[in-house]
Nucleic acid binder design. Sequence first.
DNA 1: GTGATAAATTACCAGGTAGTCATATAGGAA
DNA 2: TTCCTATATGACTACCTGGTAATTTATCAC
Lengths: 113, 113
Amino acid sequence: MKKKPLGPDLLARVADRFKVLAEPARLTVLNALREGPLHVSALMDKTGLNQANLSKHLQLLHAHGYVARRRQGVFIHYQLADNSVFALCDIMCGQLERKLKVESSQLKLKKAS
Amino acid sequence: MKKKPLGPDLLARVADRFKVLAEPARLTVLNALREGPLHVSALMDKTGLNQANLSKHLQLLHAHGYVARRRQGVFIHYQLADNSVFALCDIMCGQLERKLKVESSQLKLKKAS
DNA sequence: GTGATAAATTACCAGGTAGTCATATAGGAA
DNA sequence: TTCCTATATGACTACCTGGTAATTTATCAC
């Protein structure tokens, strides 16, 4: 039971995992998979990404364990391996809301001056 | 009360925020600030980053609302604006642990074959 | 005012990576 | 086998960003 699990190499690993999520295209993919597994072609339709680009993002998401793969005939279905991603996004959205609130109140103050 | 707050532009904002955390140097800075405010020179000592580099990371962290600034004479003290960062890191660490566990068990299977 | 120190900023370079196009691989049907 | 479709991969380019050095700004002491 480590209380402070934040050694230098662990920080690098954590940063790597954040990096995977630091891309709108990949978040779009994960979001598209929220409601269930989809094969690549369906993901192309749903995300608007082209085949090569989408495939590369999927490889990265898979390599980092964000999605799982399963073959079904010619199609390959991808699904979320872990829905903790959305816990992360929820926290981020919460931070965003607070930040936007602060900014808008600062804007009001500036207007009033 | 939006149930699905994940529009395309929101995804871009969330990705931007993840990007700020997707850097070992910045995570190191945030980690160094866990126990309280520090001025830049103290942060240099604690993190090993040089002045210019550290300053750039601090500007970014501040611009995104991760840290707050306060001047005290010649020194400028930085502190965490929000400790939800560590909630994010905890989730990441949890994912990492699960992933490492899976990998090690796969390794065992490979050895056994 | 000058000098000293803290922090920010600018200009630059180097490495990484998202996007795209073309090609390769793989599975199913005929 | 050959053809077709689904997905992956390689090469390439363009952009972005982290690190560094030099400079600038700001505050305090004198």
